[in-house]
């Protein structure tokens, strides 16, 4: 292998065609409310974890849809299950239960 003093850039496009929606479907089946998110960020703004960790329920909700399971796995670790996000969501989404099911799904599919 030669390097020529540079690397070939990685593609940073979200490849929606290749996205693995398995986890998304699993969660949506358990808690269909996941489809109601409007990405307003109220959940994230109230989250004690988000202030210190790269943790945002809004982003998790997006990662799930885009099949970005790796990012999601990293972020979800910081959730403390306090439920404050559920309290403030204007769409009445049971965010806490979604996090719970994502974790279950990750385990089940051994992502």
């Amino acid at each position: 292998m030669k390097t020529f003093g540079y690397t070939i850039q990685n593609d940073r496009q979200i490849d929606f065609d290749a996205a693995d929606k398995k986890l998304y479907r699993y969660v949506a089946e358990k808690e269909p409310d996941i489809n109601l998110c409007i990405f307003c960020g109220t959940c994230t703004a109230t989250c004690s974890a988000a202030e210190f960790k790269n943790m945002s329920f809004r982003k998790i909700s997006l990662f799930l849809r885009r099949g970005l399971t790796e990012n999601l796995k990293r972020e979800i670790e910081s959730c403390m299950f306090c439920g404050k996000c559920t309290l403030v969501c204007p769409r009445g989404i049971n965010t806490r239960n979604i996090i719970f099911n994502i974790r279950k799904g990750i385990e089940e599919y051994e992502f």
Partner: peptide, 24 residues
């Protein structure tokens, strides 16, 4: 006042995560 104290169980239990706990 509404901010969590940072206990959060799984956060505190792993030593490497305690910096997050104390930051809260």
């Amino acid at each position: 006042r509404r901010q969590c104290c940072g206990f959060g169980f799984r956060q505190y239990i792993v030593q490497a995560n305690r910096g997050y706990s104390v930051a809260c």
